[in-house]
Simulated scan of single mutants.
Amino acid sequence: MSEIRTKVQFVDIDDDMAGQRVDNFLRNFLKSIPKSMVYRILRKGEVRVNKKRVKAEYKLQAGDMVRIPPVTLEEKAEEVAPSTKLNKVAELENMVIYEDDHMLILNKPSGTAVHGGSGLKFGAIEALRALRPQARFLELVHRIDRDTSGILLVAKKRSALRHLQAQFREKTVKKFYFALVMGQWKSSCKVVNAPLLKNEVNSIVRVNPNGKLSETRFKIIEKFADATLVQASPITGRTHQIRVHTQYVGHPIAWDDRYGDRRFDAYTGKLGLDRLFLHAANIKFIHPATEEWMEINAPMEAKLERTLEGLRKQSS
């Protein structure tokens, strides 16, 4: 591990950077230093905005000039950007299904985490930054599980990030997933309202009256002899929500290693399935610049389509 001492930096705040707290700006700008150091240099007055001391909660305005003092950064091997020659990184370039000046939308493969951490050297966002070194700003708008495939929104401007995340908070974004579940889903089961509580030790989520209110809406897409393809639309955004709600009503998702049923996995495995059958297939939201509604569809990978085709043959 080596250290780098930076020089004094002066940053002009533009419209896209404006509106954020200065402490959050510094934590993003100085990614390699601990949070405690950010607050220390603010408290000691070493950070200046327009030549004046500011508090952590100061909100930056367009036209502000921020002075960032010299700091010592630690270079860690695990923080090196992933090589763009790695197959998993390179394939993400082909998974971009929409892009403009404000955002890009990825059809994330199953097995790829959205970001590094917990023993993972990199995730989708780190890979995209390696593929787009010229991009000044790339941030996740939301998250989906590592084993879930499908739509992932990435903001290319801070203003777009704020706009899109506000839509998620206000629950105006409409998200639709495809899930292959065990057994015959009842047509009368259109909504599951069941509070969810996450175990912070092992991250397992359970239905619990002391948990957070959680709602998922379901629609049958196709019935098979011993399985059902359903469309799931989460109204709330809890961890593992769709996976736990399907399990709760007795229809776990195929190849769910936490909430699934091994008998169902063995059954679908004979058709070539070896991954969680949960795919973020469709999203509707307001474009952060044009203010017009957008609808994006992400196709399922061939392995999922082949599994459905196999089920159709068995059911005919």
Rank of each mutant, 00 (worst) to 15 (best):
residue 123 G to N: 06
residue 275 R to W: 02
residue 185 W to D: 08
residue 88 K to F: 13
residue 306 R to P: 01
residue 279 H to R: 13
residue 9 Q to E: 15
residue 244 V to F: 00
residue 63 G to F: 05
residue 215 E to G: 00
residue 305 E to D: 13
residue 20 Q to K: 11
residue 181 V to K: 09
residue 119 G to R: 02
residue 129 R to I: 05
residue 229 L to Y: 04
residue 308 L to Q: 10
residue 60 L to K: 05
residue 194 A to L: 08
residue 311 L to Y: 03
residue 130 A to D: 05
residue 295 E to I: 10
residue 279 H to Y: 11
residue 218 F to K: 05
residue 170 E to L: 11
residue 307 T to L: 10
residue 243 R to E: 08
residue 62 A to I: 07
residue 134 Q to N: 15
residue 104 L to A: 04
residue 40 R to P: 00
residue 275 R to D: 04
residue 19 G to L: 09
residue 218 F to Y: 14
residue 82 P to R: 03
residue 30 L to I: 10
residue 32 S to R: 15
residue 221 I to Q: 13
residue 94 N to L: 11
residue 131 L to W: 06
residue 54 V to F: 08
residue 262 R to C: 09
residue 288 P to Y: 09
residue 23 D to Y: 04
residue 245 H to E: 11
residue 260 G to W: 07
residue 160 A to H: 11
residue 139 E to R: 14
residue 177 Y to C: 05
residue 155 A to Y: 10
residue 77 A to M: 09
residue 11 V to I: 15
residue 218 F to L: 11
residue 162 R to L: 08
residue 292 E to Q: 14
residue 125 I to C: 03
residue 311 L to C: 01
residue 234 P to V: 05
residue 71 V to M: 02
residue 208 N to Q: 04
residue 205 V to E: 06
residue 283 I to H: 04
residue 8 V to N: 08
residue 192 V to M: 08
residue 269 G to I: 07
residue 90 A to F: 13
residue 110 S to F: 01
residue 88 K to G: 00
residue 7 K to L: 14
residue 63 G to H: 09
residue 13 I to T: 11
residue 225 A to I: 10
residue 149 S to F: 06
residue 307 T to A: 10
residue 268 T to Y: 03
residue 173 V to E: 03
residue 90 A to V: 12
residue 284 K to Q: 15
residue 196 L to Y: 01
residue 42 L to F: 08
residue 150 G to M: 08
residue 14 D to F: 07
residue 286 I to M: 15
residue 118 S to I: 01
residue 93 E to K: 15
residue 124 A to N: 03
residue 103 M to S: 06
residue 203 S to K: 15
residue 153 L to A: 01
residue 233 S to Y: 02
residue 43 R to G: 02
residue 116 G to E: 01
residue 229 L to F: 02
residue 59 K to I: 06
residue 120 L to I: 14
residue 224 F to K: 00
residue 143 R to E: 06
residue 201 V to G: 00
residue 314 Q to L: 13
residue 313 K to G: 01
residue 97 I to L: 09
residue 24 N to H: 12
residue 101 D to Y: 12
residue 164 L to Y: 06
residue 76 K to S: 12
residue 250 G to S: 08
residue 168 F to S: 05
residue 157 K to S: 15
residue 156 K to M: 04
residue 72 T to A: 07
residue 285 F to K: 10
residue 79 E to T: 13
residue 142 H to I: 12
residue 259 Y to A: 14
residue 209 P to V: 12
residue 16 D to I: 10
residue 194 A to D: 01
residue 119 G to T: 01
residue 239 T to P: 01
residue 272 G to F: 02
residue 66 V to L: 08
residue 305 E to L: 14
residue 311 L to V: 04
residue 112 T to L: 15
residue 187 S to T: 12
residue 85 K to Y: 11
residue 10 F to C: 01
residue 123 G to T: 01
residue 181 V to R: 11
residue 278 L to K: 06
residue 213 L to V: 13
residue 68 I to V: 14
residue 288 P to M: 11
residue 263 R to L: 10
residue 214 S to R: 03
residue 313 K to M: 12
residue 185 W to E: 04
residue 164 L to C: 04
residue 85 K to R: 14
residue 42 L to V: 11
residue 119 G to L: 04
residue 187 S to I: 00
residue 287 H to L: 04
residue 140 L to G: 00
residue 313 K to S: 13
residue 68 I to K: 06
residue 200 E to C: 07
residue 111 G to P: 07
residue 110 S to M: 03
residue 315 S to I: 00
